[in-house]
């Protein structure tokens, strides 16, 4: 198992998947920020004052981290940011899912995720992605540490 996790091709595949997913996810948000801001608002999760800043910054954070994680530049930083973003997405989706089960007034509307099974699917996808990003993050720290030791030994 450890062999697979440290295999450079496997790690590159994980980075490629994460990068492509994040770049792809950012494009729609970049194109329609107002709708993205609405979608965040509908999650009723973030304080209102931060919603638009979040809607302005997150798509660029996603696209930049997506590019960096594929190219391997700032790998530790970009994989950590991706892990943190996924962590927040999972919390936001989970609370939407739990609250969604209690709907009795029809007051709750999620524009991007239209029903409960969609939310559940998104949560599962994000959990798989966060596992991948944690692996990339840990391995990037380990390989840096090894490189540094090698440099010291030289």
């Amino acid at each position: 198992m450890n062999k697979i996790l440290t295999n450079k091709y496997f790690l590159f595949l994980l980075r490629l998947i994460l990068g492509v997913v994040f770049i792809y996810a950012s494009l729609d948000k970049l194109y329609n920020q107002e709708e993205f801001s609405r979608a965040i608002y509908n999650y009723k999760f973030f304080p209102e004052i931060f919603i638009n800043i979040f809607a302005i910054v997150v798509p660029y954070l996603e696209i930049i981290c997506g590019i960096l994680i594929i190219t391997g530049i700032y790998l530790r930083g970009s994989s950590l940011i991706i892990t943190l973003m996924l962590f927040f997405f999972i919390i936001a989706l989970t609370q939407a899912y739990i609250r969604g089960l209690d709907i009795s007034c029809g007051c709750f509307s999620l524009e991007t995720v239209s029903n409960k099974s969609d939310i559940l699917q998104r949560i599962i996808e994000d959990i798989l992605l966060i596992i991948a990003s944690i692996i990339v993050f840990i391995q990037s720290i380990k390989s840096k540490t090894i490189n540094n030791k090698e440099k010291v030994n030289e």
């Binding site: 329609n32 920020q33 107002e34 801001s37 608002y41 209102e48 004052i49 919603i51 638009n52 800043i53 809607a55 302005i56 910054v57 798509p59 660029y60 954070l61 930049i64 981290c65 960096l68 700032y74 930083g77 970009s78 940011i81």
Partner: peptide, 26 residues
């Protein structure tokens, strides 16, 4: 910090020149 700052700066600049840009506070 560098990645976040760069994203923030690009986001704010593009948003301010984009005709479909949104206000900073909803």
């Amino acid at each position: 910090l560098i990645i976040t700052l760069v994203s923030l700066i690009i986001g704010l600049i593009v948003n301010s020149v984009n005709p479909k840009g949104i206000p900073l506070v909803r």
